[in-house]
Amino acid sequence: MDIDAREIGGVTVVAPQGDIDMAVADDLRLRLANAIERGRVRVVLDLGGVMYIDSSGLGALVTAMKQARAAGGDVKVCALASDVRALFEMTRLDKVLSIHATRAEAIAACGSS
């Protein structure tokens, strides 16, 4: 899977492209953990390029959220496809993760949190 990562205004924006399933979830989990361990604790996960995510992928996001919050930061997500949002709601992740419509809104929210 392609994972675009860049720094924008002190926020690490990670944008996976493609399905996040068991085959790639550990790679995403590792990439996010490495960024957080290097002090990049304000993370925006842009899921606009993700049409399918499974429980492994959701688990990777939860791991990153917990790691970032433990380090004083947070993971915010944006641009959820409707099917992906449905899984967030099913697992109640929509209640614990900060979800934004656009990348710009998620980045702005990092500054205000």
């Binding site: 499974d54 429980s55 959701l58 688990g59 939860v62 791991t63 959220m65 917990k66 899984l87 099913m90 697992t91 109640r92 992740l93 614990v96």
Partner: peptide, 20 residues
Amino acid sequence: PPDLDAVPERGMGLFLVRQS
């Protein structure tokens, strides 16, 4: 069944099956 209030990192697979 996963304890969703605990925000689990694993163990949600069969729960998603039953919900879907």
